[in-house]
Design a protein around this nucleic acid. Sequence first.
DNA 1: AGCACA
Length: 448
Amino acid sequence: MMASVSSQPQFRYTQPPSKVLHLRNLPWECTEEELIELGKPFGRVVNTKCNVGANKNQAFIEFADLNQAIAMISYYASSSEPAQVRGKTVYLQYSNRQEIVNNKTTADVAGNVLLVTIEGSDARLVSIDVLHLVFSAFGFVHKITTFEKTAGFQALVQFSDSETASSAKNALDGRCIPSYLIPEHMGPCTLRITYSAHTDLSVKFQSHRSRDYTNPYLPVAPSAIDGSGQVSVGLDGKKLEPESNVLLASIENMQYAVTLDVLHMVFSAFGPVQKIAMFDKNGGVQALIQYPDVQTAVVAKEALEGHCIYDGGFCKLHISYSRHTDLSIKVNNDRSRDYTIPNTPMMNSQPSILGQQPASAVGAAAQQYGGGPYAPALAPAQHTMHHQPPAGWGPVPGAQSMPMQMQGHNPPYMQQGTVPFQMGPGMMHGPSHPGLPHPPPMPPYQSQ
DNA sequence: AGCACA
């Protein structure tokens, strides 16, 4: 006999699982949006096709992953409530196809990330800040990445949700960037917008090509296109970030421990450091460093941005201006310290971490800056985007084993005609001495 | 119940 199934079985059990589901008994003019809504609770719907079949009341839903399709089938297999669209029960089964084939791409499926192509002869002169400004009018922009493709200059703009992204797309697709946001000599820049298949962009650090605005310690550009003074200054990609006496340093590729004292020494090369607060952010370490004045912070930022605390691209600093002006240090510990409080035990808590006191280290390093043995450590890093992971090799003293050179990179810390690496007192040369920094090759302390 | 070429 027949197994006892309900009078209207929603499922056919003979189909092998597929990430494509076949739906039938749909209301007559079911939209793709309704299909997405139906499938959304179970996973990411990457494609749909509706109005298929003889009576145009069938459809397909394709999930990103087979398990998501299984989840939907499984749910409704045991649910007392059948799957419904507009109150009408729809019947689900695995499709006998493995993917929906149509001329639609993910670019037509609404998502929270937009793929923006900037058209125009001067398209690549459009800065990421202008893009941020334009798209922020529709909601909080989480991240932006820009890149050059055969299609031209493109950007991925990430919103919180597809609704916000859709409103931006609807308003901006085919439109030009407002002329007051770009210099007069630039021709019109038209935006062509589709949906991206991305849902969360990977932005490793802030740069002129990519930004992550979800970091609360980074300045946020004006959220509306209001024509105020700030909007015209974003073309160099930097000016929207107001200067501050407090720097936000994030540490990339942190192979070695970077302690509060290391940071204090590095940043003290430019002037008195008043306060430091370290914290973990997005799986990395960041620190806020407070100077008494903006000028000192500017000098420190300019000198340190993109430089590495340790050789071999380790512990690369990315520095921006914080919106803070005075840090609130509640307790002095190994993560936060207020150096302006006279009776505070500063180095005492970790008496022997440093080979040298910061001041002497700075003095010793000062003469070396620009070509001496210590210079490599904080030379400008040119490969800011894609460092090779250092697995398998350690920084070994001696020119014969410069790993980045061996990998065919132009080692950013190498300076022509100089001995690339020499050991010095207190120098860091491998993971066996974590916490020992290079003396920072900084300009001498300037008190003004 | 049924599975498409836009």
